[in-house]
Design a protein around this nucleic acid. Structure first.
Lengths: 155, 155
DNA sequence: CAGTTTTTAAGAACATCGTTCTGGAAATAA
DNA sequence: TTATTTCCAGAACGATGTTCTTAAAAACTG
Protein backbone atom coordinates (compact mmCIF):
# COMPACT_ATOMS: atom_id res chain seq x y z
CA UNK A 1 0.00 0.00 0.00
CA UNK A 2 2.94 2.31 -0.50
CA UNK A 3 4.95 2.02 -3.67
CA UNK A 4 2.80 3.06 -6.62
CA UNK A 5 5.58 2.65 -9.13
CA UNK A 6 6.75 -0.89 -9.66
CA UNK A 7 9.91 -1.19 -11.71
CA UNK A 8 9.83 -3.13 -14.94
CA UNK A 9 11.01 -6.39 -13.40
CA UNK A 10 8.43 -6.21 -10.65
CA UNK A 11 5.70 -5.71 -13.22
CA UNK A 12 6.85 -8.75 -15.16
CA UNK A 13 6.92 -10.78 -11.97
CA UNK A 14 3.40 -9.93 -10.85
CA UNK A 15 2.14 -10.45 -14.39
CA UNK A 16 3.66 -13.91 -14.50
CA UNK A 17 2.60 -14.91 -10.98
CA UNK A 18 -0.94 -13.68 -11.48
CA UNK A 19 -1.14 -16.02 -14.43
CA UNK A 20 0.62 -18.96 -12.79
CA UNK A 21 1.35 -18.77 -9.09
CA UNK A 22 3.26 -22.05 -9.08
CA UNK A 23 5.83 -21.13 -11.67
CA UNK A 24 9.34 -21.95 -10.48
CA UNK A 25 11.74 -19.13 -9.69
CA UNK A 26 14.03 -20.40 -12.42
CA UNK A 27 11.24 -20.09 -14.99
CA UNK A 28 10.33 -16.70 -13.56
CA UNK A 29 13.94 -15.65 -13.92
CA UNK A 30 13.99 -16.73 -17.55
CA UNK A 31 10.98 -14.56 -18.33
CA UNK A 32 12.43 -11.42 -16.84
CA UNK A 33 16.08 -12.06 -17.66
CA UNK A 34 17.51 -12.67 -14.19
CA UNK A 35 18.76 -15.63 -12.25
CA UNK A 36 16.51 -17.13 -9.64
CA UNK A 37 18.14 -15.54 -6.58
CA UNK A 38 17.33 -11.86 -7.24
CA UNK A 39 14.00 -13.07 -8.56
CA UNK A 40 13.25 -14.77 -5.25
CA UNK A 41 14.31 -11.62 -3.40
CA UNK A 42 11.95 -9.45 -5.42
CA UNK A 43 9.04 -11.76 -4.76
CA UNK A 44 9.76 -11.67 -1.03
CA UNK A 45 9.80 -7.90 -1.20
CA UNK A 46 6.53 -7.77 -3.13
CA UNK A 47 4.96 -9.97 -0.49
CA UNK A 48 6.33 -7.91 2.38
CA UNK A 49 5.13 -4.65 0.83
CA UNK A 50 1.64 -6.04 0.35
CA UNK A 51 1.58 -6.04 -3.45
CA UNK A 52 1.28 -9.82 -3.42
CA UNK A 53 -1.27 -10.77 -0.78
CA UNK A 54 -1.21 -14.50 -1.28
CA UNK A 55 -1.60 -17.35 -3.72
CA UNK A 56 -4.88 -19.02 -4.51
CA UNK A 57 -6.11 -21.98 -6.52
CA UNK A 58 -8.66 -20.88 -9.10
CA UNK A 59 -11.62 -23.17 -8.73
CA UNK A 60 -14.39 -23.71 -11.25
CA UNK A 61 -17.67 -23.02 -9.45
CA UNK A 62 -19.69 -24.97 -12.00
CA UNK A 63 -17.49 -28.00 -11.41
CA UNK A 64 -18.23 -27.59 -7.72
CA UNK A 65 -21.95 -27.57 -8.41
CA UNK A 66 -22.39 -23.84 -7.91
CA UNK A 67 -24.47 -23.08 -10.97
CA UNK A 68 -26.32 -19.94 -9.90
CA UNK A 69 -24.65 -16.58 -9.55
CA UNK A 70 -26.46 -13.35 -8.81
CA UNK A 71 -25.71 -9.70 -8.24
CA UNK A 72 -27.93 -8.43 -5.47
CA UNK A 73 -28.35 -4.71 -4.85
CA UNK A 74 -29.29 -3.99 -1.28
CA UNK A 75 -30.61 -0.94 0.51
CA UNK A 76 -29.62 -1.02 4.17
CA UNK A 77 -30.84 1.02 7.09
CA UNK A 78 -27.89 3.21 8.01
CA UNK A 79 -28.32 2.47 11.70
CA UNK A 80 -27.48 -1.19 11.19
CA UNK A 81 -24.82 -1.11 8.51
CA UNK A 82 -22.09 -2.42 10.78
CA UNK A 83 -24.10 -5.45 11.80
CA UNK A 84 -25.04 -5.95 8.16
CA UNK A 85 -21.42 -5.93 7.02
CA UNK A 86 -20.43 -8.30 9.77
CA UNK A 87 -23.18 -10.70 8.73
CA UNK A 88 -22.12 -10.46 5.09
CA UNK A 89 -18.55 -11.32 5.98
CA UNK A 90 -19.72 -14.33 7.93
CA UNK A 91 -22.03 -15.61 5.23
CA UNK A 92 -20.43 -18.29 3.10
CA UNK A 93 -22.67 -17.79 0.06
CA UNK A 94 -21.44 -14.24 -0.42
CA UNK A 95 -18.37 -14.13 -2.64
CA UNK A 96 -17.99 -10.36 -2.65
CA UNK A 97 -19.65 -7.24 -1.31
CA UNK A 98 -19.12 -3.65 -2.41
CA UNK A 99 -20.38 -0.53 -0.70
CA UNK A 100 -21.46 1.63 -3.62
CA UNK A 101 -22.78 5.01 -4.65
CA UNK A 102 -26.16 5.32 -6.30
CA UNK A 103 -29.58 3.88 -5.64
CA UNK A 104 -28.39 0.98 -3.50
CA UNK A 105 -25.99 0.88 -0.61
CA UNK A 106 -24.36 -2.48 -1.36
CA UNK A 107 -23.92 -4.89 -4.23
CA UNK A 108 -23.47 -8.53 -3.31
CA UNK A 109 -22.17 -11.35 -5.47
CA UNK A 110 -23.87 -14.53 -4.39
CA UNK A 111 -23.60 -18.17 -5.43
CA UNK A 112 -25.92 -21.10 -4.97
CA UNK A 113 -26.07 -24.68 -6.15
CA UNK A 114 -29.40 -24.27 -7.91
CA UNK A 115 -32.27 -21.85 -8.29
CA UNK A 116 -34.26 -23.36 -5.43
CA UNK A 117 -31.34 -23.03 -3.07
CA UNK A 118 -30.87 -19.48 -4.27
CA UNK A 119 -34.51 -18.63 -3.61
CA UNK A 120 -34.24 -20.04 -0.12
CA UNK A 121 -31.03 -18.16 0.43
CA UNK A 122 -32.58 -14.88 -0.63
CA UNK A 123 -35.86 -15.20 1.23
CA UNK A 124 -34.86 -16.99 4.38
CA UNK A 125 -31.39 -15.66 4.99
CA UNK A 126 -30.30 -12.51 3.20
CA UNK A 127 -33.62 -10.70 3.63
CA UNK A 128 -33.30 -11.24 7.37
CA UNK A 129 -29.85 -9.81 7.76
CA UNK A 130 -29.70 -6.77 10.04
CA UNK A 131 -30.77 -3.51 8.43
CA UNK A 132 -31.87 -4.90 5.09
CA UNK A 133 -34.68 -2.84 3.60
CA UNK A 134 -34.89 -3.66 -0.08
CA UNK A 135 -33.45 -6.02 -2.68
CA UNK A 136 -32.90 -5.88 -6.36
CA UNK A 137 -31.61 -9.10 -7.83
CA UNK A 138 -29.94 -9.61 -11.19
CA UNK A 139 -29.16 -13.21 -12.11
CA UNK A 140 -25.88 -13.62 -13.96
CA UNK A 141 -26.77 -15.62 -17.04
CA UNK A 142 -23.22 -15.83 -18.36
CA UNK A 143 -19.70 -14.92 -17.29
CA UNK A 144 -18.46 -12.96 -20.28
CA UNK A 145 -15.18 -12.17 -18.56
CA UNK A 146 -13.73 -13.35 -15.28
CA UNK A 147 -10.63 -12.40 -13.30
CA UNK A 148 -9.13 -10.06 -15.84
CA UNK A 149 -5.58 -9.64 -14.51
CA UNK A 150 -4.78 -6.61 -12.40
CA UNK A 151 -1.20 -6.58 -13.61
CA UNK A 152 -2.34 -5.92 -17.18
CA UNK A 153 -4.03 -2.71 -16.05
CA UNK A 154 -0.78 -0.95 -15.23
CA UNK A 155 -0.81 1.68 -17.99
CA UNK B 1 -17.61 -29.77 -15.19
CA UNK B 2 -18.78 -33.28 -14.37
CA UNK B 3 -18.41 -34.55 -10.84
CA UNK B 4 -20.73 -32.57 -8.57
CA UNK B 5 -19.87 -34.57 -5.51
CA UNK B 6 -16.35 -34.16 -4.23
CA UNK B 7 -15.37 -36.61 -1.53
CA UNK B 8 -14.29 -35.30 1.84
CA UNK B 9 -10.58 -35.32 1.05
CA UNK B 10 -11.10 -33.46 -2.21
CA UNK B 11 -13.07 -30.81 -0.36
CA UNK B 12 -10.30 -30.36 2.16
CA UNK B 13 -7.75 -30.12 -0.64
CA UNK B 14 -9.57 -27.42 -2.60
CA UNK B 15 -10.27 -25.55 0.62
CA UNK B 16 -6.60 -25.55 1.52
CA UNK B 17 -5.34 -24.73 -1.97
CA UNK B 18 -7.84 -21.93 -2.43
CA UNK B 19 -6.38 -20.40 0.71
CA UNK B 20 -2.74 -21.08 -0.10
CA UNK B 21 -1.91 -22.35 -3.54
CA UNK B 22 1.78 -22.78 -2.74
CA UNK B 23 1.34 -25.10 0.20
CA UNK B 24 3.59 -28.15 -0.10
CA UNK B 25 2.05 -31.56 -0.69
CA UNK B 26 3.46 -32.71 2.62
CA UNK B 27 1.65 -29.89 4.44
CA UNK B 28 -1.47 -30.62 2.42
CA UNK B 29 -1.21 -34.24 3.44
CA UNK B 30 -0.93 -33.29 7.10
CA UNK B 31 -4.14 -31.28 6.90
CA UNK B 32 -6.19 -34.06 5.38
CA UNK B 33 -4.51 -37.00 7.06
CA UNK B 34 -2.75 -38.62 4.12
CA UNK B 35 0.79 -38.91 2.90
CA UNK B 36 1.87 -36.70 0.06
CA UNK B 37 1.64 -39.28 -2.72
CA UNK B 38 -2.14 -39.83 -2.78
CA UNK B 39 -2.44 -36.13 -2.08
CA UNK B 40 -0.51 -35.34 -5.22
CA UNK B 41 -2.62 -37.81 -7.17
CA UNK B 42 -5.85 -36.18 -6.05
CA UNK B 43 -4.63 -32.73 -7.02
CA UNK B 44 -3.68 -34.01 -10.48
CA UNK B 45 -7.14 -35.48 -10.81
CA UNK B 46 -8.81 -32.26 -9.68
CA UNK B 47 -6.82 -30.36 -12.28
CA UNK B 48 -7.62 -32.83 -15.04
CA UNK B 49 -11.33 -32.79 -14.22
CA UNK B 50 -11.42 -29.00 -14.35
CA UNK B 51 -12.22 -28.39 -10.69
CA UNK B 52 -8.89 -26.62 -10.26
CA UNK B 53 -8.39 -24.33 -13.24
CA UNK B 54 -5.06 -22.84 -12.22
CA UNK B 55 -3.12 -21.01 -9.56
CA UNK B 56 -2.95 -17.26 -9.25
CA UNK B 57 -1.15 -14.70 -7.14
CA UNK B 58 -3.60 -12.44 -5.33
CA UNK B 59 -2.52 -8.89 -5.98
CA UNK B 60 -3.55 -5.81 -4.04
CA UNK B 61 -4.99 -3.35 -6.56
CA UNK B 62 -4.47 -0.40 -4.24
CA UNK B 63 -0.81 -1.28 -3.92
CA UNK B 64 -0.65 -1.30 -7.71
CA UNK B 65 -2.15 2.18 -7.79
CA UNK B 66 -5.59 1.04 -8.91
CA UNK B 67 -7.66 3.08 -6.49
CA UNK B 68 -10.96 3.38 -8.35
CA UNK B 69 -13.34 0.49 -8.83
CA UNK B 70 -16.77 0.78 -10.37
CA UNK B 71 -19.70 -1.42 -11.28
CA UNK B 72 -21.07 -0.28 -14.60
CA UNK B 73 -24.48 -1.44 -15.80
CA UNK B 74 -24.74 -1.38 -19.57
CA UNK B 75 -27.61 -1.62 -22.00
CA UNK B 76 -26.41 -3.01 -25.31
CA UNK B 77 -28.09 -3.11 -28.67
CA UNK B 78 -28.82 -6.78 -29.24
CA UNK B 79 -27.53 -6.61 -32.79
CA UNK B 80 -24.02 -5.86 -31.62
CA UNK B 81 -23.69 -7.93 -28.50
CA UNK B 82 -21.02 -10.23 -29.94
CA UNK B 83 -18.78 -7.35 -30.91
CA UNK B 84 -19.43 -5.79 -27.52
CA UNK B 85 -18.39 -8.92 -25.67
CA UNK B 86 -15.30 -9.28 -27.79
CA UNK B 87 -14.31 -5.70 -27.04
CA UNK B 88 -14.91 -6.25 -23.33
CA UNK B 89 -12.66 -9.28 -23.31
CA UNK B 90 -9.93 -7.31 -25.03
CA UNK B 91 -10.17 -4.33 -22.72
CA UNK B 92 -7.61 -4.43 -19.93
CA UNK B 93 -9.51 -2.16 -17.54
CA UNK B 94 -12.40 -4.61 -17.31
CA UNK B 95 -11.86 -7.12 -14.55
CA UNK B 96 -15.15 -8.97 -14.99
CA UNK B 97 -18.31 -8.87 -17.05
CA UNK B 98 -21.60 -10.60 -16.37
CA UNK B 99 -24.53 -10.92 -18.72
CA UNK B 100 -27.50 -10.36 -16.44
CA UNK B 101 -31.26 -10.36 -16.21
CA UNK B 102 -33.10 -7.17 -15.34
CA UNK B 103 -32.90 -3.59 -16.50
CA UNK B 104 -29.39 -3.84 -17.92
CA UNK B 105 -27.81 -6.38 -20.20
CA UNK B 106 -24.34 -6.44 -18.66
CA UNK B 107 -22.58 -5.50 -15.45
CA UNK B 108 -18.92 -4.62 -15.73
CA UNK B 109 -16.34 -4.38 -12.99
CA UNK B 110 -13.83 -1.73 -13.94
CA UNK B 111 -10.65 -0.41 -12.37
CA UNK B 112 -8.72 2.78 -12.88
CA UNK B 113 -5.77 4.49 -11.27
CA UNK B 114 -7.71 7.60 -10.30
CA UNK B 115 -11.00 9.32 -10.87
CA UNK B 116 -9.75 11.31 -13.83
CA UNK B 117 -8.52 8.20 -15.58
CA UNK B 118 -11.83 6.56 -14.81
CA UNK B 119 -13.76 9.44 -16.33
CA UNK B 120 -11.66 9.28 -19.46
CA UNK B 121 -12.11 5.52 -19.59
CA UNK B 122 -15.88 5.81 -19.35
CA UNK B 123 -16.38 8.67 -21.78
CA UNK B 124 -13.71 8.03 -24.37
CA UNK B 125 -13.56 4.25 -24.41
CA UNK B 126 -16.42 2.28 -22.91
CA UNK B 127 -19.17 4.52 -24.25
CA UNK B 128 -17.80 3.94 -27.74
CA UNK B 129 -17.75 0.17 -27.60
CA UNK B 130 -20.00 -1.48 -30.21
CA UNK B 131 -23.69 -1.58 -29.35
CA UNK B 132 -23.50 0.44 -26.13
CA UNK B 133 -26.70 2.39 -25.58
CA UNK B 134 -26.77 3.42 -21.92
CA UNK B 135 -24.67 3.40 -18.79
CA UNK B 136 -25.37 3.35 -15.12
CA UNK B 137 -22.28 3.66 -12.99
CA UNK B 138 -21.91 2.81 -9.32
CA UNK B 139 -18.56 3.63 -7.77
CA UNK B 140 -17.39 1.07 -5.23
CA UNK B 141 -16.55 3.10 -2.15
CA UNK B 142 -15.37 0.14 -0.11
CA UNK B 143 -14.69 -3.56 -0.53
CA UNK B 144 -16.64 -5.04 2.36
CA UNK B 145 -15.82 -8.58 1.26
CA UNK B 146 -13.55 -9.91 -1.45
CA UNK B 147 -12.89 -13.36 -2.84
CA UNK B 148 -15.02 -15.28 -0.41
CA UNK B 149 -13.82 -18.85 -1.00
CA UNK B 150 -15.85 -21.07 -3.31
CA UNK B 151 -14.84 -24.15 -1.37
CA UNK B 152 -16.61 -22.87 1.74
CA UNK B 153 -19.90 -22.75 -0.16
CA UNK B 154 -20.16 -26.52 -0.50
CA UNK B 155 -23.09 -27.08 1.84
C1' DC C 1 38.57 11.96 -10.16
C1' DA C 2 39.74 8.29 -6.63
C1' DG C 3 37.97 5.94 -2.84
C1' DT C 4 34.10 4.28 -0.13
C1' DT C 5 29.74 2.58 0.65
C1' DT C 6 25.60 0.62 -0.91
C1' DT C 7 22.89 -1.90 -3.93
C1' DT C 8 22.10 -5.73 -6.99
C1' DA C 9 23.02 -9.98 -9.35
C1' DA C 10 25.14 -14.61 -10.03
C1' DG C 11 26.68 -19.09 -8.63
C1' DA C 12 27.56 -22.63 -5.27
C1' DA C 13 25.65 -25.36 -1.66
C1' DC C 14 22.21 -27.59 1.04
C1' DA C 15 17.69 -28.70 2.69
C1' DT C 16 13.15 -29.26 1.02
C1' DC C 17 9.84 -30.52 -2.22
C1' DG C 18 7.67 -32.57 -6.47
C1' DT C 19 7.29 -36.80 -8.92
C1' DT C 20 7.87 -41.59 -9.96
C1' DC C 21 8.11 -46.28 -8.69
C1' DT C 22 7.27 -50.25 -5.92
C1' DG C 23 5.00 -53.03 -2.53
C1' DG C 24 1.31 -53.99 0.33
C1' DA C 25 -3.17 -53.22 2.65
C1' DA C 26 -8.04 -52.47 2.11
C1' DA C 27 -12.05 -52.72 -0.66
C1' DT C 28 -14.85 -54.94 -4.34
C1' DA C 29 -16.36 -58.81 -7.16
C1' DA C 30 -17.02 -63.50 -8.26
C1' DT D 1 -12.45 -68.13 -0.15
C1' DT D 2 -9.71 -66.34 -4.32
C1' DA D 3 -8.95 -62.97 -7.59
C1' DT D 4 -9.16 -58.28 -9.09
C1' DT D 5 -8.99 -53.70 -8.34
C1' DT D 6 -8.32 -49.49 -5.89
C1' DC D 7 -5.92 -46.85 -2.74
C1' DC D 8 -2.16 -45.48 0.32
C1' DA D 9 2.65 -45.31 2.44
C1' DG D 10 7.51 -45.20 1.90
C1' DA D 11 11.75 -45.15 -0.69
C1' DA D 12 14.29 -42.96 -4.23
C1' DC D 13 15.74 -39.37 -7.29
C1' DG D 14 15.67 -35.25 -9.84
C1' DA D 15 14.04 -30.51 -9.46
C1' DT D 16 13.19 -26.53 -6.63
C1' DG D 17 13.33 -23.18 -2.72
C1' DT D 18 16.40 -20.83 0.20
C1' DT D 19 20.72 -19.30 2.17
C1' DC D 20 25.35 -17.83 1.86
C1' DT D 21 29.31 -15.92 -0.35
C1' DT D 22 31.41 -13.21 -3.75
C1' DA D 23 31.76 -9.95 -7.31
C1' DA D 24 30.18 -6.34 -10.30
C1' DA D 25 27.59 -2.16 -10.87
C1' DA D 26 25.68 2.01 -8.95
C1' DA D 27 25.52 5.74 -5.79
C1' DC D 28 27.76 8.66 -2.63
C1' DT D 29 31.76 11.27 -0.43
C1' DG D 30 35.96 13.61 -0.08
Amino acid sequence: MKNHMLDKNAQKIVTALEQDARMSFAALGDEIGMSKTPCWNKVQQLQASGVIEGYSAQLNPKALGLTIRALVHVVVDFEHYQAFEQAINAHKAVRSCHAVTGDSDYVLEILASDIEAFDELLRAQLSRLPGVQRFNTAISTRMVKNNGPYAAMLT
